[in-house]
Computed example of a mutant assay.
Amino acid sequence: MSKIVEDCRDPPYVNLTLPPAFGSAYVGETFSCTLCANNELAANSDRQVTSVRIGAEMQAPSGTTTLEVSPTDQQAAKVDPGGSLQKIVRFELREEGNHTLAVNLSYSETTVSNDQSASSGRVRTFRKLYQFVARPCLGVRTKVSNLPSGNSDDTESQAARYVLEAQLENFADGTIILETATLNPKLAFKSTSLNWDAKELDVHHSDKPKMAPRDVLQIAFLIEQQKDGPGKEVTKDGRTLLGNLDIQWMSVMGERGFLSTGWLTTKKK
């Protein structure tokens, strides 16, 4: 973490505080951080702090994103001595690697005379950087197997059937609870879950799969070509596009995560 002050001859009278640590950050989860700008002037000071503004941006491996600071109202605020201005920033972690939260603070410092008139003032700005690493939370390995047709009729026998197996591994430091695992098939197919939600029963929170660190869980889906449906989408090397897998989980502290795979295909012919 670093701090750059515009004018270093006098100490700044507003201190920007970031959390010293927040634990691990995982791809698929939402980074959330509270920023506090504290007015450290004494109550009897002849100075005032006004027009306090907080801005933030996230520097990720793929580029820099300007973050929305909430609440968005009263961006330019007056902070009384001993008071604090608090803002919250959120960012969806979508890629692994180093991330840097850059926070900019600006405010007006005014000297007030005995007759309560402002005699002088200046604008101060400084910047703080907070670096962390986003790591994968859930590892996914998939395998597609062909199934014979379930009907001997000449027309029906042309309908393709597959089983998609996925192996999930918890890379996080803590236990996670799998909320949903959904296969979104291409238009030519329909999918049937073979997992804990297969019977479409009311699954309570306590009944959902729990994965401790390094635990592995197998899930599977039946994929069937729809009768009278659109044609299959095939890649240039002869692979059939089946769909993509969406997985949602929650940590024991209530933090939610989401992962979506790329297009899953059959084996190359």
Rank of each mutant, 00 (worst) to 15 (best):
R161D: 06
P148A: 04
T235N: 12
M250S: 05
H99M: 11
A160E: 07
V133Y: 12
T50A: 13
E57D: 13
Y13P: 01
M250E: 07
A181N: 07
L18C: 06
S117A: 10
A42Q: 07
G243I: 01
E68T: 15
S145Y: 03
N114L: 12
S2C: 06
L245D: 01
I88Q: 13
T192W: 00
L217G: 01
Q158M: 06
A134C: 15
P230H: 07
Y107C: 06
D246L: 06
M253C: 00
I247S: 04
E29V: 04
A181K: 03
A188E: 02
F132E: 04
G139R: 08
F31N: 04
T100C: 14
S24R: 14
D10V: 11
R161F: 03
I54A: 09
D173Q: 13
G231R: 11
L183S: 08
H99D: 07
T34Y: 00
S70C: 11
Y13E: 00
L242E: 00
L183P: 07
Q74A: 09
P209E: 09
Q225D: 05
A212W: 05
T266M: 09
N184W: 02
I88G: 03
F171K: 13
F258Y: 14
A56V: 08
V5K: 11
I54E: 06
T265M: 08
N15K: 14
E255A: 05
A43C: 07
V163I: 15
L164F: 00
Q167I: 10
P19V: 10
T34V: 14
G262V: 08
R161K: 14
E165G: 03
P230T: 12
G243T: 05
H99C: 10
T72C: 06
E95V: 09
